[in-house]
């Protein structure tokens, strides 16, 4: 697969790799994908009482574009409010990374991961 420079940059220098404590009340965790499909993303968001995403971390099992999509997602959500983060569309990721058509599902997964993490956070606040 011939990737564009942005995918290669995120792959070689992934931003925000790591994990937060799943049990932390201020942390929302989203795990999407499946090992048999070849990609699993774990996205974690640290959200403050003003509903601002203070920090984000990811771990991804998947191809270069899956890793790049999740790395980019962590960069984008940081500093955003929860509502703003929910506005991030997979097509924004496709455009930013210039993903080829066969890799669009990686961007969908990243969008799903953001939503799943926020949903997890909201559940914790109930």
């Amino acid at each position: 697969m011939a990737y564009g420079p942005k995918v290669i940059d995120h792959f070689n220098n992934p931003r925000n790799v790591g994990s937060f404590d799943k049990g932390d009340q201020s942390v929302g965790t989203g795990v999407v994908g499946a090992p048999e499909c070849g990609d699993v993303m774990k996205l974690q968001l640290k959200i403050n009482s003003q509903n601002i995403i203070e920090d984000a971390k990811f771990k991804t099992f998947g191809c270069g574009s899956a890793i790049a999509s999740s790395s980019l997602a962590t960069e984008w959500v940081k500093g955003k409010s929860v509502d703003e983060a929910l506005q991030i569309k997979n097509t924004d990721i496709v455009n930013e990374l210039a993903l080829p058509p066969v890799k669009i599902h990686c961007s969908v997964l990243a969008e799903d991961a953001i939503k799943a993490a926020i949903e997890d956070y909201k559940k914790k606040q109930e």
Partner: peptide, 24 residues
């Protein structure tokens, strides 16, 4: 592997076969 959620889970002793994955 340092950035693989599966490796992390396996090291935590989670049986990956028991996890409910969101297949796509």
């Amino acid at each position: 592997r340092d950035m693989s959620p599966l490796y992390e889970m396996a090291k935590e002793g989670i049986d990956l076969k028991s996890v409910q994955w969101t297949t796509h």
